[in-house]
């Protein structure tokens, strides 16, 4: 099927309002985004009704959060929380969501949590989150501002600082969530040496192997983003995950069909995706 005519017909209409890119994927990206938003709205409406929402599968890493908090409480040793190496990005927001949950528990059980920040803007928000948890538990005075430490913006200065805290404080648990870089293996191994139970979750592909090897529980890629829905079992958040999974399924179907057709010499899917 010749898609050139379709592409030529669409170009004048689209070029007036849609940005273009040299890979000719801007129209496809726009359609995909519109589809995703449609799914979000659909599941949003579904969450307002009474229909049962899709079930989330078990995620051992998130189930282990309570176990790690309990261990720290029993041993009387602190939890070290690392909310990632990037500033305000999607993984950091996900890490802060988990930190909010952990903060609720530590405030309830009077467990100490030391949070190590690489970026001061994240410190401002993170310490506020934890302080709010203590306020809600009626334990305003139990909040320790000194346990929220900006260590360094330098990657390995930060890693050294966290390792020092792990070893001096003999942490019982270490939570590494967010976006990590080469220091991931250093943090995880030092946590191992001090005998901490370690739960890690990060969204990129590069540090996953190191965290798998060194940590007790690892959240893989998207599982980090699932945390807020999983921990709260909120209908709306579960609906958002369902929308995400449906959109991903569409991509998978396109990949499978495209690979199959390409194997037999047809680049139809490629031409449809690169119309403009």
């Amino acid at each position: 099927m010749d898609t050139t005519a379709l592409s030529d017909a669409l170009r004048p209409f689209l070029s007036s309002w849609l940005r273009s890119d040299s890979n000719r994927l801007s129209f496809t990206a726009f359609i995909f985004f519109a589809f995703f938003i449609t799914m979000v709205i659909y599941y949003w409406r579904m969450s307002l009704g009474e229909k049962p929402m899709p079930k989330l599968r078990r995620i051992p890493g998130l189930d282990a959060l309570d176990e790690s908090i309990g261990r720290a409480t029993e041993m009387g040793r602190p939890i070290v929380f690392v909310p990632g190496m990037s500033g305000f990005s999607a993984p950091t927001y996900a890490a802060l969501t988990i930190m909010g949950y952990v903060a609720d528990q530590v405030a309830r059980y009077d467990t100490r949590m030391i949070v190590c920040y690489r970026y001061p803007e994240v410190l401002a928000v993170g310490s506020s989150i934890v302080q709010t948890s203590y306020l809600e538990q009626g334990k305003r005075d139990a909040f320790r501002a000194d346990d929220h430490r900006f260590l360094s913006s330098d990657q390995f200065g930060y890693a050294s600082g966290v390792c020092g805290i792990l070893q001096r404080e003999r942490a019982a648990s270490q939570h590494i969530f967010g976006s990590m870089a080469a220091e991931a293996i250093i943090l995880a191994e030092v946590g191992n040496v001090v005998g901490a139970i370690q739960i890690a979750g990060q969204t990129g592909s590069l540090q996953q192997p190191y965290l798998f090897a060194a940590c007790d529980y690892t959240l893989m890629v998207e599982e980090l983003y699932v945390a807020s829905a999983y921990l709260s079992q909120d209908r709306l958040r579960i609906g958002m995950l369902a929308a995400q999974d449906i959109s991903k399924s569409v991509l998978i179907i396109l990949i499978v069909i495209g690979a199959f057709l390409m194997t037999f010499g047809s680049n139809f899917i490629d031409r449809i995706l690169t119309l403009y």
């Binding site: 890119d21 040299s22 890979n23 080469a182 590069l206 540090q207």
Partner: peptide, 16 residues
Amino acid sequence: RATGEVDLIIDVPTGS
């Protein structure tokens, strides 16, 4: 690259 300014980019990554 995506905007078509420079077609040739040589990547020199670290091992990781």
